[in-house]
Every structure is written in C-alpha cells, then in structure tokens.
C-alpha cells in the first residue's frame, strides 16, 4: 500500500513537466497546425539565459529573464520560420522547427562554452514533503503548480475570451479570419509567444531539478511531451495535461512493479521507456484520435 501511494505520487510529479511542455505543443498545433519540434528548445534556451543571467542577477530575476527569452524565441520562430513557411507543405514546416531545435542546441554548445553540465539553483530549495520514503522537492511542486495555473489560464482563455475564439478561428479559416477584421498574423504571434512562455517556464523550472547540458529539455522531455500530446488528442489542452500525467504514472508504475519480474529486470533495464512506447502504440491502435481528441 505504501509503495502504491508512493508510486502514484511519483508518477504525478514526474508527469507534470511532460504535461507542461505538451501544453505548448498542443497550443501551437491548435493555433497554427504545426508540429513544433522547437518547443523543447524554447525551454533549454530559456534555461541557458537564466543560467547566464544568474551570474549577475538573483535567481528569481534570472528565471524571469530566462522566461522572457523563451517568449522572445517563440515570437522569433513565428516571425522568421513559421510565417514565411505558412503556405509551404506541413512537412517542410516540421523539418524547419526541428532545424531550429538542432540549431539552438549547437549554439548552446558553441557559444555557451561546451557540452559540460551546468547547474541553475532551484527557485525554492529543499524537499516539500516525503511520502513513504519518496521525497518530493519544492521545485517539483512548483512545476505542478505552474501546470495547474497555465492549464486553468489556457482553459479560461479559450472558453471565455473573444481572443481565444479568434485564435481558434484563425486556425480553422485563415481567409475568413482576415475578412472579419481579426488579422491572422497577430493571432499567430500570440500563439507562438504563449508557446514560448510555456516552454520557457518548463525549461527554467526543469533546469533547477538537476544539472543540465545543452539541449536538455529536448533530450529529456520533448519525446515524452509529444507522446503526451498525441495520447491526449493533439488539439485538446486538457488532453495534454491528462496525457502527461498518464505518462508519468505509466513510467512510475512500470519502474516500481515491472522491475520486480525477474525476466524484465534482467533484460529490460529501462522498462519504463518501453512502457511509454507500448502506451503510445495502444492509444494509436485503439483510439487514433487520442483520449480527448476530436479529429484523427
């Protein structure tokens, strides 16, 4: 019983960063119909900016600088990549965002002084609580709080504001969006800026969890965030949150329970990765539109 509760708590907290990054991926997909492979690097670039700013500035201010850099990167990618390629085939846009990600990582290695580990201190140090021998750090609680806050804000944005409606309209019918006087370009900037914000928050918080290297968010979270987004339905913001949390739970359960099976423990040292893959295949096979998705 203790083990079960600990596993659930761990799963929830380890799924939160996936969900936070997945929110950004879903937002861009919902608003621009683009698979944004640069979402992770909005995070790492923000983390690097915070790390550098922290040489001169206190950690909270440095974190804020990092988040602002994340927003700026989101806006920049919209202006110089997404907008010029708006009418290009989707696959070109997808490759372009992947190019942004690899370019950003190269820049971190080159201009950032090599691939070694760096540390950015957590915004709040220490453990928040311990459940059955599992310690949860304050920083993880912050990630969870950020997830709850942004999920709520995005929900309100899309369900209660005209601006949220306009963003959805722009993704469904760009021509008519211009014709009613909304202006699709501003909506596109808004979406990518918000994605930069979400990525930046993810990166700055994630960098405080453990020492990090160039490309850390892409490497550690992006694939899982994409799986979370797809599992959730790709266009559904609650789906992204649920997808991220489900992923965290699948990982923590397989790590705590499947490893007890001798065959598994001996042959599959990273069984939790395999479990994520099985989950993805199962969702794609049984419910290709995702748990909360409307379209395939």
């Amino acid at each position: 019983m203790d083990q079960l509760i600990a596993t659930i708590v761990l799963g929830l907290f380890f799924g939160a960063p996936y969900a936070l990054l997945a929110l950004g991926i879903v937002l861009v997909y919902k608003g621009s119909r683009v698979f944004n492979f640069a979402q992770g690097e909005f995070g790492t670039v923000a983390a690097f900016a915070a790390y550098i700013a922290n040489f001169w500035l206190p950690v909270l201010v440095a974190a804020l600088v990092g988040i602002l850099v994340g927003i700026a990167m989101g806006l920049g990618v919209e202006r110089f990549v997404a907008r010029p390629l708006a009418n290009a085939p989707k696959v070109i846009m997808l490759v372009a965002t992947a190019a942004v990600a690899t370019g950003a990582i190269a820049l971190q290695v080159g201009a950032g002084g090599g691939p070694q580990l760096r540390t950015f201190e957590p915004l709040v140090a220490g453990n928040a609580f311990v459940v059955f021998n599992v310690a949860i750090e304050w920083q993880r609680v912050l990630v969870m709080l950020a997830l709850g806050l942004f999920a709520l804000l995005l929900y309100l944005f899309f369900s209660r504001t005209d601006l949220g409606l306009a963003v959805m309209a722009a993704s469904q019918e760009p021509v008519a969006t211009d014709l009613v006087g909304i202006g699709t370009r501003r909506m596109s900037s808004l979406v990518w800026g918000m994605a930069g914000l979400l990525g930046g928050v993810t990166g700055v918080l994630f960098a405080g969890l453990q020492p990090f290297t160039p490309g850390v968010v892409t490497q550690s979270l992006l694939v899982f965030a994409f799986v979370a987004a797809v599992v959730g339905g790709m266009t559904s913001l609650p789906g992204a949150v649920i997808g991220g949390v489900v992923l965290g739970l699948v990982q923590s359960f397989s790590a705590s329970y499947l490893t007890r099976v001798e065959v598994v423990a001996e042959n599959l040292p990273n069984v939790e990765w395999l479990a994520v893959f099985v989950l993805l295949v199962a969702v794609l096979a049984l419910r290709p539109s995702g748990l909360l998705g409307k379209e395939a």
Binding site: D162, M168, A169, Q172, E173, V180, G181
Partner: peptide
Amino acid sequence: RTFPELTVYENLRLGAWT
C-alpha cells in the same frame, strides 16, 4: 468559409470583432 468548429453564436461574435 464559416469557422467550422465554432458554434453559430461564436461565428457571429467574431464577425463583430472590430
């Protein structure tokens, strides 16, 4: 060119954007 996933009322609201 109506906004297909939005409701009739939402479509009308957006028509009054300006």
